[in-house]
Amino acid sequence: MQQNTSQQIDDILDSLNGLAPASPAPFLHTRIVARLQREQSSPGYIVLRWLSRPAVAIGLSALLLLMNGYVLFIDSRPSVPTALEENSMAMVQEYDINFTSAYEPLADEAP
């Protein structure tokens, strides 16, 4: 029984011997050309095609790098207080209004 089963499995494993190749339905080339034309006329394809041009891709990458560099440059500069900020600081110091919370008790109200 065991030997019989093993033989039948061997037969199954050998069932593809002498397999003839399968062919697609006729006029495959016509269907491929129709699909190509359909895809080439879609807006997504036109945009992707434009973006994948080397000049456009390199130009956009360079622009992105420049923008990143510019942002880094701006961030790394030491901040210089403007005239308005200087006036505000002076007023805060003069009137002693540098408490941060409305619930913070004033010095003379403290128990």
Partner: peptide, 16 residues
């Protein structure tokens, strides 16, 4: 069942 399988092997090929 692959269309290129021999007729007498169709059942075996289906299992395979």
């Amino acid at each position: 069942v692959h269309p290129g399988v021999k007729l007498d092997q169709r059942e075996n090929a289906r299992l395979l």
